[in-house]
Design a protein around this nucleic acid. Structure first.
Length: 210
DNA sequence: ACATTAAGTGATT
DNA sequence: AATCACTTAATGT
């Protein structure tokens, strides 16, 4: 990723050129392959990540290793949540795993506070970003609280199609069950039902939407 | 050929 | 909707 295309990416976020230069100068690239752990609860964040490409899955985890899915970070997103983690010398409350191959631009936290003061566009971006993470979290809370499992599963499949731009989903029933906080058997049955309704086709490690 | 992992299913709570 | 127990199918060594 060369500097010029980086600048183009950040310009799309509505940043002014002075800010873009600073971001490009102090950040560094982080490449993740699919299913790599970026951070887990209790760790100190390395900085504030901007997602250049790929998707990340953000989750909460309890002491027993049970996970609950919160939201996705997609290209163009930044994890504003990581601010609290760094401004207040707090440790991460989240677990972040790459969903596919990802490119991140990570900026040391020390700059964030200062940029928020100096650049209106940056302050706005952070607040908006915080807001959308929050909204997405409300969304998943709603779906856990108010939607039936079959609706949640359908939503999951459609979201997946949306974010990956593909009708093919490379996941096992087990993985899907974990992300929806359900069990493998339940997911297998519901998927089977969807297959009988000709909405999907099932294979090993792969689901195709029709 | 054998072991391992993913997926399908009936019965029970 | 979850869990158990068991079967069947696919894949790796």
């Amino acid at each position: 990723m060369d500097k010029e295309s980086l600048k183009v990416q950040f310009a799309q976020l509505g940043f002014v050129s002075g800010l873009i230069d600073e971001i490009v100068n102090v950040g560094k690239i982080v490449n993740l392959k699919a299913d790599e752990l970026l951070i887990s609860p209790g760790e100190k964040a390395i900085g504030m990540p901007f997602v250049l490409s790929g998707n990340l899955r953000i989750m909460r985890e309890d002491d027993l290793g049970n996970e609950i899915f919160l939201y996705y970070l997609e290209g163009g997103d930044a994890c504003a949540m990581s601010i609290s983690c760094c401004l207040g010398t707090q440790l991460s409350q989240f677990k972040a795993v790459s969903e596919d191959d990802c490119q991140l631009w990570v900026v040391p936290m020390t700059y964030i506070d200062e940029w928020m003061g100096r650049y209106f566009s940056f302050r706005k971006f952070i607040i908006d970003s915080y807001q959308s993470r929050f909204d997405e979290m409300l969304d998943t809370i709603d779906s856990i609280a108010f939607m039936n499992m079959d609706e949640r599963l359908m939503k999951f499949l459609l979201d997946k199609k949306q974010s990956s731009g593909s009708y093919i989903i490379h996941k096992t029933h087990e993985q899907i069950a974990r992300e929806l906080n359900s069990s493998r058997v339940v997911i297998s049955r519901l998927l089977k039902k969807l297959e009988r309704e000709d909405k999907i086709e099932l294979y090993r490690n792969r689901i195709e939407l029709l």
